[in-house]
Design a protein around this nucleic acid. Structure first.
Length: 656
DNA sequence: GCGACAAGCTTG
DNA sequence: GTACGAGCTTGTCGCT
């Protein structure tokens, strides 16, 4: 089959600067050349993206600069399934291992973490200095896609940067059709392994060449020097995230299957109430917002004002809640949505992503956000639903904090890695508010953190004293988190469920007491407007918000909110990123059996045998708290641990 | 049948 | 118009 496919394939003469290596002699020459270079570009082609579920490399693109400064590139095929002549993997493996583990050679790649995963699968590492052009692209301009072909077009001006990518895609579409598979299904099974070797050489050669050119471009722009500190962190982090993803988190599949049965039943009950009892058999699809709106507005005559971003009438949780006390349809819609969310997002799809041993390996992206935070997908470990108090009370009669159990808990599906091991949770304490306090130098905030008070309660007290009546801590918490990001009185009123007049008075009092917060915002925006709409945080990460100088008032205001958000969130994110690098390095140096396995914005999770728990904390907690550039207040990492599941974490002090 | 988009929900 | 940053899922709509 595979051989026949090639017979039909169009012959493709290689572009002049490209080499296809299919003989041992030429491979030998290639390796000798590359071994003599100070830096090389690498790019695997693979049989799929999922390294944990059988995907492997099928060939490697390599590029380097000649003595005269020209980029020279080659493709080395070794596991294509086309029947064409290629190199024997046993022959290339030792040479590739020697090359990639050579500490004297800098490895350049566009998303080097991907290369890291597939190298490890072959039994070697990427050692020595590394340079990721995808991260450089993000630092150069965070407002634009970091995809290789996009940057080749945008930053290098290569108009036909996608010429081979398009040809590859067309070929994959044809192969998928011949195999009677959808494109995604085909790529999951075969990746590029049935792709003709010449076409792959064209495509991969272009990729490594463009990566090399992007390296030149970003270095001429001074990226690694301009952002020296975060650059060092980001490059080290590529390898640490690779560790973290490989370690992954084991999943309790039978438990999740049980949760699925329960939520499916709950949906059936809700759908029966909606369609049979309430609508008398003339039912709707509860998943269709259009039908839900039509029913509520036209058939039930309900009226509300909230709209979606595009101007349609919203039918979200907030709107349904307005009517759910008196309208049974809205009540059961909320029930249906809750159960449906858990079923579709957190049961079967998680089980389907497991490796053969039942472990989930997510994908952390260092360039996934404009602020500098990490993003995570496949699955997203950063939005696993937390235990719900109402469900816990219904089931066990107790709140979650008091030992209650949420029967639909997703975090309970994340058990320990091995018997006798525990999971440690290092969580930065109110880190964004500490960043705000440091930047704004607000005396009350600083005083509160120096006294190790509960800042939300302090705010409640400060407001209460002026207000003449007690301010709930809950409302103060919303204000503390929201006001720096320009939460309006109307927004506070809506979120905190308080009267608008109360919210207005509250905000006025807040700004009177925390006067430096508003002043800091204005200073930040002024500084940015004087500097091409850019602002650089204490670690050197820059956020560019061109909308800041928009003539459109709304756009400019939105830009202000995004900039202040990025300033605070991005600074906080840097603590977590650098701490991941520090922690992994320290634990490896001391040869402690501890595995980094997850991070959720202001939190790092580490697995270790119970007997190492105290030692790991002694090592990790101080290095997370050591950021001397924060001069006015302490940075604190709280420690929790569990020997059961993610949902069962408890304070470390109480356990001792 | 596929891709893009919108809306809604989850999280820090 | 009215709080920042993400990812995943379903439904809808237009296009091939």
């Amino acid at each position: 089959m595979a051989t026949q496919l090639v017979a039909f394939a169009e012959p493709l003469p290689l572009e002049p600067n490209k080499q296809l290596i299919t003989t041992p002699e030429r491979f030998e020459k290639l390796i000798r050349f590359l071994e003599s270079r100070p830096k090389i570009v690498i790019d695997y082609e693979t049989s799929g993206l999922d390294y944990a579920n059988g995907a492997h490399s099928i060939g490697m693109g390599l590029a380097a600069w000649t003595d005269s400064g020209q980029i020279w590139n080659a493709y080395v095929p070794y596991r294509h399934r086309t029947g064409e002549r290629q190199l024997d993997f046993a022959l290339v493996a030792p040479a590739l291992k020697g090359l990639l583990e050579n500490q004297a050679i800098c490895k350049i790649a566009h998303n080097i973490k991907f290369e890291d995963h597939f190298s490890r699968r072959e039994g070697w590492a990427i050692l020595g200095p590394r340079y990721d052009t995808m991260i450089a692209a993000r630092l150069y301009d965070e407002n634009y896609s970091a995809k290789l072909e996009n940057r080749a077009e945008w930053d290098l001006g290569i108009r036909d940067s996608r010429r081979w990518e398009t040809r590859v895609h067309d070929r994959i579409v044809a192969l998928a059709r011949m195999n009677r598979l959808g494109i995604e299904a085909y790529k999951k099974i075969h990746g590029y392994e049935e792709l003709g070797i010449e076409l792959t050489a064209q495509y991969c050669g272009t990729d490594v060449e463009q990566t090399g050119l992007l390296y030149e471009f970003y270095e001429r722009a001074g990226v690694s020097q301009l952002y020296a500190r975060i650059w060092a962190t980001e490059m080290a982090l590529t390898s640490d995230l690779c560790d973290m993803e490989e370690n992954g988190l084991p999943l309790d599949i039978p438990y999740l299957e049980d949760v699925k049965r329960q939520v499916v039943q709950a949906q059936e009950v809700a759908a029966y109430q909606i369609n049979q009892v309430i609508l008398g058999g003339h039912g709707i699809n509860p998943g269709s917002d259009k039908e839900v709106f039509d029913l509520m507005w036209n058939r039930m005559g309900l009226r509300w004002t909230k709209k979606t971003k595009k101007g349609a009438m919203a039918v979200d949780e907030e709107v349904l809640s307005q009517f759910s006390a008196t309208n049974a349809f809205c009540y059961y819609m909320l029930k249906w949505r809750e159960a449906n969310k858990i079923e579709t997002t957190y049961t079967e799809s998680l089980i389907a992503m497991c490796d053969p041993r039942g472990v989930l390996h997510p994908n952390f992206q260092s360039v996934g956000t404009v602020t500098g935070r990490l993003s995570c997908g496949q699955p997203n470990f950063q939005n696993m639903s937390a235990d719900n108090d109402d469900r816990a009370i219904e089931f066990s009669g107790k709140k979650v904090e008091k030992g209650g159990v949420d029967p639909w808990s997703i975090r309970r599906a994340f058990p320990m890695r091995h018997p006798g091991w525990v999971r440690l949770f290092f969580d930065y304490s109110q880190v964004e508010l500490r960043v705000l306090a440091e930047y704004s130098q607000d005396p009350i905030m600083i005083d509160s953190f120096l006294r190790r008070e509960d800042l939300h309660q302090r705010t409640a007290n400060e407001i209460g004293a002026v207000w003449g009546k007690e301010c709930p801590r809950r409302v103060a918490k919303i204000a503390n988190f929201g006001i720096a990001y320009c939460l309006s009185a109307a927004g506070l009123s809506r979120q905190a469920h308080i009267a608008e007049s109360e919210a207005e008075f509250f905000m006025a009092t807040f700004f009177a007491r925390y006067s430096r917060v508003a002043a800091f915002r204005e200073e930040l925006w002024g500084e940015a407007r004087r500097n091409h709409c850019q602002w650089t945080n204490i670690f050197g990460r820059t956020r560019r918000v061109p909308d800041l100088q928009s003539g459109d008032f709304r756009k400019a205001k939105s830009g202000e909110r995004r900039l202040i958000g990025s300033a605070i969130q991005g600074t906080a994110a840097e603590f977590t990123k650098e701490s991941i690098v520090r922690a992994n390095r320290a634990l490896k140096e001391r040869r402690i059996p501890a595995l980094l396995c997850n991070t959720v914005h202001d939190e790092i999770q580490i697995d270790t045998p119970r007997e190492y728990m105290a030692e790991v904390i002694t090592i990790v907690k101080p290095l997370m708290e050591y950021y001397p550039e924060i001069k006015s207040i302490p940075i604190i990492a709280d420690v929790e641990w569990s020997d059961k599941t993610w949902a069962d974490k408890q304070d470390y002090e109480e356990a001792v």
